[in-house]
């Protein structure tokens, strides 16, 4: 599902990040581990096509990313990759539903309100559909962000420190939901984290 081969990312002169080769099979949820500054987020962004590596081949969902450029990369990401961040980063001028419609619109998929209702139902958020973003609790907002990531039925879900700002209880919940949702859509979950609470859950790991 995901393969990384001799990937190098150059930050500045003489600041190369060399990533070990890595293969992830479909449905095999994985972790990228390491202290801060070692390149977890960079690797995750390379996998998401948000950064172009200096050298090497990155393959996601059967697609060599370097073959896609500009707009095609953006659309590929919108359709096949779900992204989750430490903070929910919902658009505060939009309602919950509009935030989700935006995900469909930007990925150039048909805008399907029924699909949105279904996803919200599963996450127990159906009553928050028309809520403004500022009306949501932190936990709710993070769940909406997950809903946004899985809405387009991606093949890969990339999460960057999804639990870092959450307490044990919420952290547990979010991880449960993430794994559950990834399994429902048969997506491969990759989490970049330094959070000890996560490590024990997924045996397939890459240490940087």
């Amino acid at each position: 599902m995901i393969s990384v081969q001799s990937v190098i990312y150059t930050y500045g002169p003489a600041k190369d990040l060399i990533f070990p080769d890595w293969e992830i099979e479909q449905g095999k949820h994985s972790l990228i581990l390491g202290g801060s500054g070692c390149g977890k987020t960079t690797l995750l962004h390379v996998l998401a096509g948000l950064r172009t590596p200096t050298a090497g081949i990155v393959k996601v969902a059967g697609q060599v990313l370097s073959e896609l450029g500009g707009h095609r990369m953006d659309v590929f990401r919108g359709k096949h990759i779900g992204l989750i961040f430490q903070k929910p980063h919902l658009l505060s001028v939009l309602t919950v539903e509009d935030n989700l419609l935006l995900a469909q619109y930007m990925a150039e998929l048909p805008q399907d309100k029924k699909r949105i209702r279904d996803v919200l139902d599963v996450l127990n958020l159906s009553d928050r559909r028309n809520a403004k973003v500022y009306e949501l609790s932190q936990g709710e907002a993070q769940r909406i962000a997950i809903a946004r990531a899985v809405l387009n039925k991606p093949q890969v879900i990339l999460a960057d420190e999804p639990t870092a700002s959450l307490d044990d209880d919420n952290s547990e919940k979010v991880l449960n939901i993430l794994e559950e949702q990834a399994n429902v859509y048969n997506a491969t979950l990759v989490i970049a984290t330094h959070d000890q609470r996560v490590k024990s859950r997924f045996p397939h790991q890459l240490k940087l």
């Binding site: 998401a48 953006d74 990401r77 658009l91 995900a103 930007m106």
Partner: peptide
């Protein structure tokens, strides 16, 4: 940035 990550082009 979120819009871009959701598939929006520049």
């Amino acid at each position: 940035a979120i819009m871009r990550s959701l598939g929006a082009s520049r």
